[in-house]
Design a protein around this nucleic acid. Structure first.
Lengths: 226, 226
DNA sequence: CTACGACATCTTGCATGCAAAAATGTCATC
DNA sequence: GATGACATTTTTGCATGCAAGATGTCGTAG
């Protein structure tokens, strides 16, 4: 009778939602790798549920693009081409750029000081070379910017798209010098924000994100010697 | 045994997908109005299906934000506050602005001439005051720009967000002078594209979208004398 | 007349059942 | 050894069943 979700958080939360969240997390973190088949019965057994909530979860994941449904032929973790990944990175870069521009003009002093705090704390993380901690910080940093746009719809969209790249970003950030550069780029963005120059912050953010993408591309090409 | 989907397109398409598409269309066009309850059994009867595919469709619509699921209390068509609508408009405006900037720099001559053709044809539509035709043209115009970014992921996101505003845009465009102004704004955007000035095209597109939003806001405030 | 609560009804959430399509395996033929 | 027809197994797509939670009604107490 034991299953992974048995003592999960809230009993009022729907089973299908918990399964969806669990799978989304596994896909985002890369524990479920691209192309992996998601057998309904197998997942149902794994989560101690029936196929119905599993199916609902899979259909929902398909809408957010994390899995691919091939009618009557099963569901697989979304398999993305390098081109598509680069497209996603460019999109995220542009959205981050526009978020930071709006945020620069709209953030409250409180939001600004919170962002500075976050950024300052990241120095210690970089020094320790703690990839997981930097990952968490990075997410917090970018989400703080999204929220500072004072446009919650935009923030939601940004978070959704950003999170779809999590799996790739993790791989890419596991390089020490990239961690260093990432923080330096954040520093430059912070400066532009401090000066109230949204356009400059925007350009720097775009460059920051595209640098990350380029680092990733190199990483992919290096590890896949076709 | 008659139901609305009986002679629908492709027999290989999943029932749940057809139901989802049908509902998405009804919500986008406003035939199903915000706040309307979506009873599973009722919809199942309406589509000549059982509750299972209906439930799958509803859950998927919830992910794309068209409906709201209140656990154990049913599903309703997403009810949006004026603030949220304005947020959505701003988001769309910014995304359109970035799309047209990228498109200006990347579109092929073929894409450019296609866009010009579309724009030219819209003059007759405005003269006739054919709202539905202009609606269709407008969609085609904007989607042509999305595609011209040569970033299909971005284009998909843009289409998804744009379509969520369809219901509101329709209401807003049913004013003759707005139709006229809309075309004039397109004209200005086309000019910037022709000059290869992506930044200018971007600013004009943002203004164009925000004008539409402002027109809508007036419309809403006028029709809701609280 | 309002507030409260027991009861009845309706709806949802999930499990299970079943038919059809797809995948897989078997075996004969070339 | 490769190929293809056919049987078997597996898996999906959808229908149905049932229990628990939500909602509505009505009677009674205050």
């Amino acid at each position: 009778m034991t299953n992974e979700l048995e003592d999960a958080a809230d009993d009022r939360e729907l089973l299908s939602d918990r399964i969806r969240n669990a799978l989304a997390d596994e896909i985002a973190t890369g524990r479920l790798e691209a192309g992996a088949a998601l057998d309904e019965q197998h997942l149902a057994d794994r989560f101690g549920a029936s196929r119905t909530p599993v199916r609902e979860a899979l259909r929902q994941l398909a809408v957010s693009g994390l899995v691919e449904v091939r009618p009557r032929r099963g569901v697989v973790v979304a398999r993305m081409t390098p081109e598509r990944i680069m497209e996603m990175f460019e999109t995220v870069a542009e959205i981050e750029a526009l978020c930071v521009r709006l945020a620069t003009y709209r953030m409250t002093p409180l939001e600004r000081s919170h962002l500075i705090e976050l950024h300052d704390a990241s120095e210690a993380i970089v020094r320790k070379g703690d990839f997981d901690a930097y990952d968490a910080f990075n997410r917090a940093f970018h989400e703080a910017i999204y929220r500072a746009t004072h446009n919650s719809f935009l923030a939601e969209q940004a978070i959704a798209i950003h999170s779809r790249l999590t799996a790739f970003r993790r791989a890419q950030l596991r390089q020490h010098e990239r961690l260093d550069r990432s923080r330096a780029e954040h520093e430059a963005i912070m400066q532009a924000i401090a000066e109230g120059d949204g356009e400059l912050a925007s350009r720097r953010m775009r460059a920051h994100m595209l640098n990350a993408a380029t680092a990733l591309r190199r990483f992919i090409e290096a590890s896949k010697p076709v």
